[in-house]
Design a protein around this nucleic acid. Sequence first.
DNA 1: CGACGATTTGAAGACCTTCAACCACCGTGG
DNA 2: CCACGGTGGTTGAAGGTCTTCAAATCGTCG
Lengths: 227, 227
Amino acid sequence: MSTLLASPSAGSSITTRALSIPRAWATDMRADEADRVLGPVHNYAQGREIYGEGDPAECFFEVGFGVVRTCKFLGDGRRQIDAFHMAGDIFGLEITADYTFSAEAVCDCALVSYRRHGTGSDMRLSQQLFSYAMHGLAQAQDHALLLGRKSAIEKVTTFLIGWAKRSPNETEVTLAMTRQDIADYLGLTIETVSRTLTYLERAALITFVTPRQVRLRDMNALQELSS
Amino acid sequence: MSTLLASPSAGSSITTRALSIPRAWATDMRADEADRVLGPVHNYAQGREIYGEGDPAECFFEVGFGVVRTCKFLGDGRRQIDAFHMAGDIFGLEITADYTFSAEAVCDCALVSYRRHGTGSDMRLSQQLFSYAMHGLAQAQDHALLLGRKSAIEKVTTFLIGWAKRSPNETEVTLAMTRQDIADYLGLTIETVSRTLTYLERAALITFVTPRQVRLRDMNALQELSS
DNA sequence: CGACGATTTGAAGACCTTCAACCACCGTGG
DNA sequence: CCACGGTGGTTGAAGGTCTTCAAATCGTCG
């Protein structure tokens, strides 16, 4: 179900198609290619680029299922992940002509694309988009506090709690992303992330069922450590 | 001159009063107190709090002159400065009921306040605000890249260049803020900022006329170092 | 099983912080 | 006129956190 459609300001004129069954055959197309052919629903395989920094920002996206990362790069390849987007999230909304980020599929995912132009005429939709922009702003600012002022343990626990809160089960969490993704989100190295997670497991605050499956055993203690 | 009024979508219905001569006698009032009495123009003395994190967000602001910092705090007092706002900038725009930041006057400054409610009915104004939100978002995201992935030298040079670009004279720059402010903006300590500036001066890339007055002597080299 | 990517672990070192002292500037007041 | 105190800024030395480089282990999938 599309969040834009499900929002209080229902009846958006952008599209009448709800997010539906993914079309596996669209997996190998880029957004701009696929959109001309397929309409607004696209599938992306794990690792696939959805758009690159500097590409013309013709549309923005809503996640149907799966996880998307938006990130920026420095000249020498250093990467900073801005956010992980999951079902219902909007990303790729730009005011400039081009994307200021690149976006990639963290795991297989389905997206709904919305054309940018023409969105100015719908008042409620504009407010909806404004709301998303403000939400993104608040997130980015919390993220800056984390990046600038938190220690490795605080960063990792903050991440775990934040991810858990957005997961179906708050204490039994599946990490869709690699350690490298987590590191690039937290401004750490992969080794520091790994060591910190090991530390948390040794301290009995979390348990790894598999490297991607975590049980949060002591939410209070984690909350304590998160700042 | 108010940027909102000077913008392409001129004729905003929010206020008809252009930013005018500062009223020194308003200096000792908080925004909410002063607004009832004075209307939309306020002065704030250096160091004065404009609003605090968690205060009800009744209005947002445009800087007339001077510099404002918006920042967040952790429980133990660690501070992260989100942005420095100068003439023409908008800040304090929130979608939640309360401010998610605190805002303080970096130096004596004059602000125009705008009431939040009632802004939904003006289409062009909404777009203007959306534009400001998106601009803030882009800034916050560049800031995250800096905080997460840049070294001290890169951070400091990035800051200097960014500040210079917004200054009247790009090579002869006045720093309105203290070293502590710079440190809290860059996610460093005051000592590291000071040492890095000294290093840049020894390398003949900058010269300090006074601790607050910098000449950028080699913009290309600085640009090189900034990432 | 065997290979490959992902993750963990170890040891050494770099970068930044911490703690402490010193310096420069400035308005105040004896 | 200069001592005084306060703020803001610089510098030094030591230490800690995180990174870097390297190797081992795990997990998954032909």
